[in-house]
Nucleic acid binder design. Structure first.
Lengths: 246, 246
DNA sequence: CGACTGCTTGAATCCCTTCAAAGGAAGTGG
DNA sequence: CCACTTCCTTTGAAGGGATTCAAGCAGTCG
């Protein structure tokens, strides 16, 4: 049951620094409280002081923050295998809210248990640390995306990131994947108005780069999309290039 | 000599989880290769695979990435006491470039030495990990800043962050601090054109919120600047509120 | 004192937002 | 099974914040 944690960590770290057998066993034995959460619910809120972190077992999660009256920025998206708020292990107060975008299965892990694991197994600590560093790299990339690129490029870039990350966890086939976001949410992630999201999606469709219907994203021309989005997957720090699209 | 590392770590972590005496001694004994670097030089470049991380002893450092032909986004700024590329301990390839903004004193630390420290002293590992998590929180905030706010608010927010962070390390007096960035660089950090940076600085000056001359930032009306920048310092996760401005 | 770099200002243009409204898809209840 | 609601998508039009182009100005350095 618990192998998803082991698997997702292994998938994320380099083979050469793979976990020891003992560490792997300890990880698998970690108590996880599995919960089903409805779409659109907050898992942990800005300002709270959680005593647990959570693993995404199923579903799409986003981190966001509300700015004065209504405006909201989504700072990142998490998919199965991710541990979005590992930061709360070491940072007391949440500065962001994690919410479900779809019906999700979440596994809560007590900080105390995680800390014990990290003390006993430095390689587990390193693996978890690495996860948070990759998250940080993704944040940085979002700063660049939102700060420098125009709507068309920006959106293409986001779509590239999503398909590559989903492919890395085996959730994309035939260049298509789930994308359970409304255009409003896309706008919140991209720093664009809903109206402009609509027009930009329309343009990507019209130019034959993607199709996007019923929360399903299909890449019709990967080479051109990658080009349009100025996408270089380095920042995702994926373990193997096998997950890279051709 | 080496106490700056100990001091800056202690300043950044909670007193309650303060380092053990042994850990502190080990930290102080860590070999650091101190180097002086000219302004505008790259310290580590996008694509490289460094074997050392570095501590900022003196000067201003920025992380940035160049997008197609000329356009550049600065994703964050680092000041004395920061360890900007701790990420390279666990992530092989750099996805960003670190450069000096001023003449700087940098202390290089070998990854191998740092890793040994982390294995031997889990509390040091935790402290360093925490540093990277705070960095990530700052990145997130920049996503929000660049994604949601308009130029005026965005710039006010950045100035708030800078003065608070500098105050936290004792480098701001009388509500004023160094700000060794050209308007061009401010634009690269804020995702704005130089021209618009100029107009926006002018407006902040005109309205009596700040003065900015000769690379020196002075806050003339903290309450209004904070307000204008929608600034809430939570995300900086500073240890004590003593460093907060009144 | 030129050359350079950074700051300032004006004017035209454009990308994107806001406002407004209509069309579609999905679910609920009578 | 069809009205009815609700949420999401789509399209039009007007306005604004920011960019780009361009040029003048100021401080600095060899």
């Amino acid at each position: 049951m618990n192998t998803i944690l082991v698997d997702s960590l292994l998938r994320k770290i380099d083979p050469k620094e793979a976990l020891s057998a003992k560490g792997r066993a300890a990880l698998a034995a970690l108590p996880i409280q599995v919960t089903q959460i409805e779409p659109g619910q907050d898992i942990v809120r800005d300002g709270e002081r959680p005593t647990r972190s959570f693993l995404v077992i199923e579903g799409f999660i986003c981190a966001s923050k509300v700015i004065e009256e209504g405006r909201r920025q989504i700072t990142s998206i998490y998919v199965p295998g991710d541990i979005p708020d590992l930061q709360s292990m070491h940072i007391e107060v949440m500065d962001i809210t994690f919410s479900t975008m779809t019906s999700s299965t979440i596994g809560f892990m007590r900080h105390s248990a995680l800390t014990e694991l990290c003390v006993a197994f430095p390689d587990i600590a390193a693996a978890l640390w690495r996860c948070t560093l990759v998250d940080a790299a993704i944040y940085r990339d979002w700063v660049i995306n939102v700060g420098q690129r125009q709507a068309y490029t920006r959106m293409a870039h986001l779509f590239c990131e999503i398909i590559v990350r989903l492919r890395a966890i085996g959730r994309a086939k035939d260049h298509s994947c789930d994308l359970p976001m409304t255009q409003d949410e896309l706008g919140q992630a991209l720093g664009l108005s809903t109206v402009h999201v609509n027009r930009t999606v329309a343009r990507l469709r019209r130019e034959g780069l993607i199709s996007l219907t019923k929360k399903r994203l299909k890449i019709l021309d990967w080479a051109r999309l990658k080009d349009a989005g100025e996408f270089d997957p380095t920042y995702l720090h994926l373990r193997d290039e096998a997950s890279a699209l051709s």
